[in-house]
Design a protein around this nucleic acid. Structure first.
Lengths: 353, 353
DNA sequence: TTGTAAGCGTTATCAC
DNA sequence: GTGATAACGCTTACAA
């Protein structure tokens, strides 16, 4: 078979030959890295058009350059679940921006040791990786990535070692909200938490329970800084319906709390619905605080008292972090803080029954 | 500088040398494509471990194989916006599964002619592409992809030409819901639509208005098949709050409809909230139908009367479609149908006022 | 401004 | 079961 193969896609060499220039010149016309005379450029472009050449093959270019222009984003959970969380969505948004400077795109990856399906941290052509919510489980993947020598940053999670992380002042922020409630006179408070571990059991848990999810643990600690003895009830996820279910339980007893500290806005929204169901007025009969500061679709006219976290900024920071590491900068962790926002869901504690 | 460069990552050639085998043998140990003696395998693996070699460089492998194992998913909108839509989230879920058989991952791409930032359909190392909600705007991207000769499928959109598409029986399904309302005696019906075009204007629009969004147009046509003269009011997006705002307008006048056909479940949920606000009972005073069949977080105890679309299946089908095209199969379009689901938000039309 | 040469790291093919 | 060879398609010093 000669090189005059009809069914083969044109390569830059073909274009160069057609245009009567060298391959390097043709290459430069497409990359723009070096000045080219207008006449030459025109000839090359014409040749490309004639041959149906649409530009350098990204695979070959990335091998040569040593860069693929792709950043992997690793989730622990089912991808669909990840996008159900507005906070993650916002982070993705920021991340997209953050890596844009790199000219990179985001490859969705799931941390899944079992399934041998799909690309993994080890086999995907990524220049860097961002791990979201890195749990102990993710450690293994992490090791393999580091072994590959590609930059990694972790958002909200304990990566261990010297892996740079994007953190949040979960404990301090939650403490702030708790102090707010205390200042309003609330003494009987319950903490509605995010899942405590991978099994996501619902219900009350004691002080001795092991909380393996960092975010849950830290926010809980913040609330307990102010209300050391407050009962904690775990939800199975950050959803309105979870908050609703929990709210029904928490508000049912005779010894109803006057305030509920929810670890997410969605949970808080559910609690408010539960309160409405029982004919309780928020904030007159019950104060509710959230966490995240997202827009909860359909919650109006309530404006949650909550901690506004810079979710998009976190994502952007992660993107910029990997970008600078790729430039050779040394890894650096960053810490973000939440802003307390008082809405209309918290008020003075009702007089004791 | 000699080849004994310390700071260079080990390659398969290094491993082979260290193990005293040829590069091809070492390669085969990692790919498993050819039987290798246990002894050899052990030696190669040991050499790899000693050298810190973690496996073939994906960039080189993909050049050689002509496959990157990456499928691009192209959105029209801001990525964050896309994931706010539960239907898209579900589709992504299915898509993830669909391409898993390919051993491929999903690269997030945005159809954005302006921004020269980030990878694009033309520069990303993708084996195939899936376009979501392909509008006229997306046509250009489409052309470039096709020129590159990579398989494409379009979900819910008019791709034109012979591009395979994953479709939905929007018109027929919506007609079904309308018939249901008609059977219940409703005569005064308003249609609350999804955005009609890229500008997303809110408000009533006439029969002459140009509706460039396929989904909106088709569902509208289905409703009009039964209620030819029904007024149509456009929302600016598929959100509960949009439905709420629209609901307030639609339910305010003296000449209130007895039923509202919403083109999405989120819009329907918002309409229900608006009805509640005005002290109207659903379905006694007002019937509301949705579209999509998603779980609307926080809508309980209502169960929407709606059209359940197989969103995840659509995604999966798209994934399978590109997979089979990569195997050389010829492109084939697929059509999905919705299932009508009667909930508790539709009932007999109230007696005329 | 253009051309030459030397890989980038892997794997398919085929012979042994 | 193993090895030699030849691409895969491109980019970038460096020389002209």
């Amino acid at each position: 078979m000669k090189r005059t193969d009809e069914r083969r896609r044109a390569t830059i060499a073909d274009v160069a030959r057609e245009a009567g220039v060298s391959a390097s010149t043709a290459s430069v016309v497409f990359s723009g890295k070096t000045p080219v005379s207008d006449a030459t450029r025109a000839r090359v472009l014409a040749a490309a058009a004639a041959l149906g050449y649409t530009g350098p093959d990204p695979r070959a270019a990335s091998l040569r350059r040593g860069r693929s222009g792709i950043v992997g984003v690793v989730f622990e959970e089912h991808l669909g679940t990840a996008f159900l969380d507005p906070v993650k969505t916002l982070m993705m948004d920021g991340l997209t921006e953050g890596v844009a400077g790199l000219g990179a795109g985001l490859l969705l990856l799931r941390d899944d040791e079992s399934a041998e399906t799909g690309p993994s941290l080890t086999t995907a052509p990524i220049d860097a990786a961002v791990l979201i919510g890195c749990s102990p489980l993710m450690r293994r993947s992490l090791d393999t990535v580091r072994a590959r020598g590609i930059p990694v940053v972790v958002i909200e999670g304990d990566a261990g070692g010297d892996i740079p992380r994007i953190g949040l002042d979960n404990r301090e922020a939650q403490r702030h909200a708790a102090r707010h409630l205390r200042a309003l006179g609330h003494e009987h408070v319950v903490i509605l938490t995010l899942p405590v571990n991978a099994d996501r059991p619902r219900g009350f848990f004691g002080a001795d329970a092991e909380v393996t999810v960092d975010v849950t643990r830290d926010r809980l600690a913040g609330a307990r800084d102010v209300y050391p003895g407050a009962p904690a009830y775990a939800a199975a996820g950050s959803f309105i319906d979870e908050g609703l279910a929990a709210g029904r339980v928490l508000l049912a007893g005779p010894d109803r709390p006057t305030a509920i500290i929810a670890q997410s806005d969605l949970l808080a929204a559910g609690v408010i619905r539960a309160a409405e169901e029982q004919g309780l007025r928020v904030p007159d009969d019950l104060s509710v605080t959230g966490f995240d500061g997202i827009v909860v679709d359909g919650l109006a006219p309530y404006a949650l008292t909550t901690l506004v976290q810079p979710a998009a900024d976190k994502g952007r920071a992660a993107g910029l972090a990997v970008a600078s590491m790729l430039e050779g900068a040394s890894p650096v962790s960053m810490h973000f803080t939440c802003a307390f926002r008082e809405g209309n869901t918290s008020g003075r504690a009702p007089a004791a029954q």
